[in-house]
Design a protein around this nucleic acid. Structure first.
Lengths: 349, 349
DNA sequence: TTGAAAGCGATACCAT
DNA sequence: ATGGTATCGCTTTCAA
């Protein structure tokens, strides 16, 4: 019988609680340690009897395989890192929740890194490497040098809503330019001719594309040089820039395109509450993202909704493929935004 | 010299990129592997010369210590898990961002688990244990049995905005009852006598406390049995329950207390947009949490703001203490909410 | 201060 | 199918 020949194990009084190991289970079940390991490995060849004995012993002892030890030998941590630049942007929580749940379904755990500023990237990467993550989803700006670090280490990387033009990187994006063009088109069709743009911060690639998409389309339509004010995606900046628009000497615009929903909401509040304008009667405002509050009745934004479910699904499956099939080619997947008409603008789809 | 007697190491053509190990560094620097290890350990005794040589070699080879191997031997993963029940609740992103950044400052990485439903807890815990996390912050309901699992494994746990009454668990909370009482008081002082409550879901401990705090205080003030409608923290539920309040036979309330800001916003929209009431002239609405949108001009909620910075700071330092000083006693820290007056209610502070 | 050697708790390969 | 043994990359005694 198992344990017969074992020397009495002296346990010190205030022993630290040591987790049960596969050796403990092996001894308890009277089998080899390798056998225990096999029983916990999905496709291993183990007899029914063996499995039964081991599993019983494991249950009795409360055995839980040590993922850290496993990772060391398999060189697979089953960990991915998610980098998010600013979680308080209303758009990201949804993305984050979707990503973690999807990874979870693949048996992969998520290490979260929230960058205070884009400058944190260096430091954050240094924190990531030691954990030997299997892959990374980055919803933050990374420089070509940073991307080089991933290549050097063969760590799969998928960008979320960013890309490095020309660089061989996988990414999933929403077509920002196209979305912006759609917004311009609808506003133009509805009769607007005087536009203004409340743009995102210059370091935001997404914001830059939304701006350039809008400007391009306006140019094509013969609208010349609309004012472009630079915001920072916050409610406050939307509010104060809209306010600025009202205080300029020139004629006020009758359509304002904002680089995200939150600034659009800020702008609406400035126009309505502070300047007593009616939207969409006096002025039209559109946003971008389709975050929850964009459909609150007080705002009911006309906006471009990003297909978050499909984008996160794509990001996860791309990363999993890159992890499971090393050397698979890079891929960029671009999804179209979905026009969500609201009552914040006179708009003809 | 190091490496002299070593057999030629045959590297296959398409070798997988193997990270540099401490042995590689040791060989390169002509020192022992232990020496390398010591150089990367904070308080170790190493001569300046040795440190210099090792660090140079490490830099040349691009050595990065393997945290997984380290964790295996030290039995410290430097990982904490954060459990959040529903990330799309506007209140949590801020909490999550704060927590991760604070842990990061302690050199601790965060494993994120976002529970779809509270029923996921079992499964989630099973996913956590194998990683041998050093501790857990739970912003999700856990049963006493679940908490027992933590004790069994000696894994430090800090509840965030929940507690298990009577159980020996550490927690940091906002005083929900007191906050609710403050809201009632201010409304009462401003002359309101007919109240209604839009409560949270019954499984939300926080929601239950906010409700009971309000009911208690109303009772003390002699207000009898205000209607209590049960919402789910969503904008939609706030909107439709407010609508219900308007369609009841009885007189409509002149003050509505909502269990969170988002429902308060929904309620405001229902009253103003759908029922053409003016708030606060015709009806007063108050919320709870102090999330970003609560201060948007269209709503400008009177609400109780949770001191998120201080609460997260407390949670992190409590958990770190429990990790670093095993056996330290449990502690509950309760912070008062901060009244944030707005224009959504007639309110006398 | 430094180096040799013994683990940490698994997996993987090789006999049997 | 099962058991023995080397190994993953570190930290940690223990001698020197």
């Amino acid at each position: 019988m198992a344990g017969k020949t074992q020397p009495e194990k002296v346990v010190s009084i205030k022993a630290v609680k040591q987790p049960v190991t596969s050796y403990d289970v092996a001894r308890h079940a009277g089998v080899s340690q390798s056998a225990v390991s096999r029983c916990f490995k999905p496709g291993a060849s183990v007899s029914a009897k063996m499995r039964e004995r081991v599993m019983t012993a494991a249950k009795e002892l409360g055995y839980e395989p040590n993922a850290i030890a496993r990772s060391l030998i398999t060189r697979r941590s089953n960990l991915v890192a998610i980098l998010i630049s600013n979680l308080t942007n209303l758009y990201y929580p949804e993305v984050l929740a979707e990503l973690t749940q999807r990874f979870s379904a693949h048996g992969v755990r998520v290490l979260l890194f929230s960058l205070k500023s884009e400058a944190d990237a260096n430091e954050t990467l240094q924190q990531i490497w030691p954990y030997r993550v299997d892959g990374v989803v980055a919803a933050a700006e990374l420089s070509p040098d940073h991307v080089g670090e991933f290549e050097k280490r063969d760590v799969p990387l998928v960008f979320y809503n960013r890309h490095l033009t020309g660089a061989p990187v996988s990414s999933v994006c929403c077509d920002q330019e196209d979305g912006a063009r759609q917004l311009v088109d609808g506003l133009y069709r509805a009769g607007h001719r005087t536009f203004a743009i409340i743009a995102g911060p210059p370091e935001s690639a997404v914001g830059v594309e939304r701006k350039s998409g809008a400007l391009e389309r306006l140019d094509e339509l013969g609208v010349e040089d609309p004012p472009v004010l630079q915001g920072d995606y916050s409610y406050e900046s939307g509010f104060s820039l809209a306010d600025d628009l009202m205080n300029r000497g020139s004629a006020r615009p009758d359509a304002v395109i904002c680089a995200n929903d939150v600034m659009a909401i800020g702008a609406l509040d400035a126009f309505r509450v502070k300047h007593r304008l009616a939207a969409p009667a006096d002025i039209s405002v559109v946003g971008f993202d389709g975050v929850g509050p964009s459909s609150w009745k007080s705002y009911d934004l006309t906006t471009i909704r990003q297909p978050v479910r499909r984008m996160t699904e794509a990001a996860v499956s791309m990363l999993m493929t890159m992890i499971e099939e090393p050397g698979s080619p890079h891929e960029k997947r671009v999804f179209s935004g979905i026009l969500k008409p609201g009552t914040s603008a006179q708009f003809t789809a």
